[in-house]
């Protein structure tokens, strides 16, 4: 581990949310274009969050802010580990803990909408968790290490060896980004954008924390995607990762929402079919 890695990790903490915000802004632009709308400016997510900080914050229980701090803290830790080039599996565990804290924040408000939102969020976590672990295991088998720096320096063929796992990862990426058909936990209520699944009872600076957390998450997920192509070098790997990332927007706009049972079954079947099979076949592909 050297200065470069530390620099990258610190850069993530400072600039990660900005990149994530840009990704979110681009996402909204693309979505709008697909729906033949003009769409908001690229920096709209940042304007939104700045405005949220100006607003009054109302809470159901003061503890909900504490859980949101936990959410943000573990999100940052997860990304920090990833960009430091350290342990991928550990980064994944931190990401999971972070997700659980977000659910706790919503559970603590105890309104029926938050309740359903967080239960669904947990269901989705249960659905995608095995695949995420299998991604880490796949990298371990190819690079012989859970360390991100070893994976980045790995064989240029790793994306071929891990092709099934890449497909599985793209599948669950749709869930992680809360895109249709798997956006169960952020389904809107009524006809207003404000009341939305897990964030129903979060407002003002609390809601801003959640948004910032999601920006970090965008960057982390882009980082995971990048890892598959990383041995090819930044010039090639980053554009590919970005294209795949935004392919999710297309999926989002062309699919209707599924029910939770279908989501869970489909995800686990895909995990088994692409992920586990890929792991099993790995010794033959090397």
């Amino acid at each position: 581990m050297n200065v470069e890695h530390w620099g990258l990790a610190v850069a993530f903490v400072v600039l990660g949310p900005l990149l994530g915000a840009l990704l979110a802004g681009l996402d909204r632009r693309l979505t709008a274009r697909m729906q033949s709308r003009q769409g908001p400016p690229l920096l709209q997510p940042i304007y939104d969050v700045l405005k949220l900080f100006e607003k009054d914050t109302v809470v159901v229980t003061e503890l909900q802010t504490l859980y949101l701090w936990g959410f943000l803290f573990f999100m940052v830790i997860s990304g920090f580990i990833l960009f430091l080039g350290s342990d991928l599996l550990l980064s994944l565990f931190a990401l999971t803990v972070s997700g659980i804290f977000l659910c706790l924040a919503a559970y603590s408000t105890n309104s029926p909408y938050s309740n359903i939102g967080s239960s669904r969020e947990l269901l989705l976590m249960m659905a995608y968790e095995p695949m995420l672990i299998i991604v880490a295991l796949g990298f371990f088998l190819v690079a012989d290490s859970f360390r991100v720096s070893d994976i980045v320096a790995g064989s240029p063929w790793q994306v071929v060896q891990l092709f099934g796992i890449l497909l599985g990862f793209l599948f669950i990426l749709t869930i992680k980004l809360r895109k249709s058909p798997f956006d169960l936990s952020s389904s809107h209520h009524g006809h207003q954008e404000l009341v939305k699944g897990i964030t129903t009872d979060l407002s003002g600076s609390d809601l801003a924390l959640v948004e910032i957390g999601h920006w970090y998450e965008n960057t982390i997920l882009l980082g995971w995607l990048y890892l598959f192509f990383a041995p090819w070098g930044v010039a090639l790997a980053l554009p590919i990762a970005l294209v795949l990332f935004f392919a999710e927007v297309l999926v989002d706009n062309t699919h209707a929402r599924l029910k939770w049972a279908t989501t869970l079954k489909a995800t686990w079947v895909v995990t088994g079919l692409f992920g586990v099979t890929n792991l099993m076949l790995l010794p033959l592909i090397t």
Binding site: D56, T57, V58, V59, V60, T61, E62, T65, T109, N110, S111, P112, Y113, S114, V195, T200, D201, G204, S205, D206
Partner: peptide, 10 residues
Amino acid sequence: PRFAVVSGYL
């Protein structure tokens, strides 16, 4: 943090 406490959204 000192925020106004309200009841949940119903």
